[in-house]
Structures are given as C-alpha cells and as structure tokens.
Amino acid sequence: MTLGRAAPDVALMPSGHGGLGSIETVCLSAESEDAVGRAVACLRGGGLVGLPTETVYGLAGDATNGEAVARIFEAKGRPGFNPLICHVSDLDMTARLAVMDDVARVLAARFWPGPLTIVLPQAEGTPVHPLTTGGLATIALRQPKGIAGDIIGRLGRPLAAPSANPSGRVSATSAAQVMRGLGGRIEMILDAGPSELGLESTIVKPERDRLVLLRAGLVGRDALREATGLAVVAPDADSGIQAPGQLRSHYAPHGTVRLDATHVEPGEYLIAFGATPTASAAAAAECVNLSPSGDLREAAANLFAALARFDRPEIGRIAVAPIPQDGLGEAINDRLRRAAAPRG
C-alpha cells in the first residue's frame, strides 16, 4: 500500500475522555469563518490548541503563560528538561525575545516563514516563560506559514508549540492523529487536512564561524551553507540537550523498529522505500511504501503517517527498508533512529 495525502482517516468528534481532566476537545475546520478568532480566544485564556503548520501539527499554548506551558508538558507527558520551540509572527516579535546577530538575520531572511528553527541567546527581559526554554539561556524560534502565523499575529504573543502528540510518540500530521493522541486533554483542534511537509523543522544554532545542526530537517546542510557561507557541524558530544527533538528515543511507535531491513521476518510490518521489493516482503503482515519512486521529499511527507499507521499495541515488530542518507534522507534516518532507540 502506498501512503497518500488524503483527508483525515477517521471522523472527528468532540472528545470527553482522556486522563488529564477529561476536557471536551472541539475540532474546528481551519477554513471556517471564526477559526482564527476562536483559536486566539482559547489561547488568550490559557487553553491549548492543536494547530496545523506546514511541518507537522503543533500543540500550541501561550509561551508567556507559565500555566499554559505547564499544561503542554502535562498533556504530552513531556520531560521538563526538554525545551519547546517558540513560534513567532515576524522579526519584530523575534527581536523582543532573542538577540539576533547578522547570521541569524540572514537565516531568517532566507528561510522564514518556513521549516527552520534558529536557537539564539534570549533577549534581556524576554516575556517568554522559563518553562518554555527548559531553563536554558537560549531560545528556539521559528516563524511558521499559514494560519499558525495569522493566529500568532492576532494574539500578539509567541506560541510554544511542540508536535501535537504524546511525548516520544509519532508526530501528528493530521487532525485525526491529534485527536487520537490528545483528545480529552486539550480544548481545540484546527483541522487543515494533512500537513504540507510532514516533517519537523531543521534546528540550527549559529556559533561564531559555524552553524551547529541540532536537528536535521527539511532545510538541508547545503542550503544552510549556501545561505551563510559557514560550515555546518554536528553538536559536541558533551553539549547536552540544547533544543527539542534531541532525546535519544523519540517518535516511537508501540512496537520495536528494525532499521535497514533487507529482508522481512514473518509477522513483521514493513515500511518500504523505492521500487525494488524488499526480500521476503510477502511475509510482512502489512506493508506501506514511503515513496514507490524513491523520492525523498515524498518519503519525508509520508514518514509519520507510516509510523502512525503501525502505532498499535498489537503490532510488535516493524521493519524499515534502507533509506539513502543524502539530502532529506539525513532527516528521515534521524527520526527513524530515534524511533528505534531503546526506551526507558
């Protein structure tokens, strides 16, 4: 089976169940006339919104409101030391939150709005709550496209918005997936259909004469190097967590994930790639192909939908065919390694 970019695969209904307060979660079309206004009112009151962005769906709360940010951690079951990305509407808002040097301005001019997060020193007097930054002196910032940017502009405050899924699990690329993971824990979900890109943002930290790539994503090393003229390097081994998505085990389905599978063992579920069949693929309980044509952009867009499809308690083992490391393959393999990492 090939994954497509179809509409959400389950009907969305308000949810009154869930472990944290049994909130009624309302799902609203992002195209409805009052969608932006209702989302802004919810966020201004300290509520949480499952918000569509061009990368994945985000779990948005007012980044200046400590109680709202605490609710994000609670809803996701997220470790308190893992910082959140702050989403901004424009460079004026960015300047109130962070110290931007020339390199940061070049990156913003080239890639914003879009799928690049920049880690910068916090500005003095920043209104962002310390819970958002995980107690770090830096802040991770991104300007999203579309309705998310409209909502931030109307609200006039940055939004803390990690991916809208329980912590460590598969990132949500549809409103249906947000409802399954967080229904009953948040007030609202805006449904804009499947995510345009389907993979989280690249995270980069400018440092003197280099860029530190903290998380691979849709903006690749070559594009970063071309825009700035700087070397793009991996973080130092002892640098610790500096940005979201750096936990070793992340994006994990229920079952174990076996990478670079050149054959399928009986009963395994298979995530395939490209036109060449994986050996003994007929033994797979079910198969999805990230991109039958071997297109890495298509594979990136379909990655989390594939993991979500096999994210069920009864599925114990998932085999993943080899994915090339070049270009977007670096980001895809990064997510797969985290999905396959030992838990606990």
Rank of each mutant, 00 (worst) to 15 (best):
G149Y: 03
A301S: 09
G77A: 09
I152R: 03
S32I: 05
A175N: 04
N82Y: 07
S32E: 14
R142S: 04
A137L: 04
L199T: 15
F73R: 04
S201M: 14
G135P: 15
L214Q: 06
E226F: 08
F273E: 00
I139A: 13
F81L: 05
A148L: 03
A68I: 06
L141P: 15
F111M: 11
S32C: 10
A234W: 02
R154A: 11
Y57H: 12
S174R: 12
H263M: 08
L197I: 13
P83I: 06
I332V: 11
P292S: 08
S22K: 13
L224T: 08
G4A: 03
G134A: 09
L12E: 09
G329V: 00
G240T: 12
H87R: 10
G21N: 01
G220T: 11
L224Y: 11
F73Y: 15
G255M: 06
L218R: 13
G146W: 01
K76F: 05
G37W: 07
E314K: 04
E67G: 07
P342G: 03
S201D: 06
S291N: 15
Q246N: 08
L290C: 04
D34P: 01
G240C: 03
E265T: 11
P244Q: 08
A95I: 06
R78E: 00
E226V: 06
A223I: 02
A252N: 02
S195G: 05
S15L: 06
T256F: 14
A160T: 09
V10F: 12
A272I: 00
G61V: 03
P324L: 01
G240Y: 07
R335D: 03
P324N: 09
E31Y: 15
I323N: 01
A321H: 13
R142W: 09
V26I: 10
R96V: 09
Y251T: 01
L197A: 05
C42D: 00
P277R: 01
L218H: 15
G217M: 00
P324E: 00
A104I: 13
N302A: 10
G37K: 04
L141I: 14
K76V: 00
P162F: 12
T138R: 04
T278V: 15
V49I: 04
R309L: 09
A301W: 00
C27N: 01
A282D: 11
L214P: 05
V212M: 05
P235C: 12
A299Y: 10
G274L: 00
R5Y: 12
N65Y: 03
H250L: 03
L116F: 09
S29H: 12
F310Y: 04
R297T: 13
V204F: 08
A109R: 11
A306G: 05
L120W: 05
A6L: 11
L290F: 01
G134S: 05
G37A: 15
D236Y: 04
G125Y: 03
R258N: 02
F111A: 02
T2Q: 12
Y269P: 00
T278D: 13
L259H: 07
A227M: 07
E268I: 02
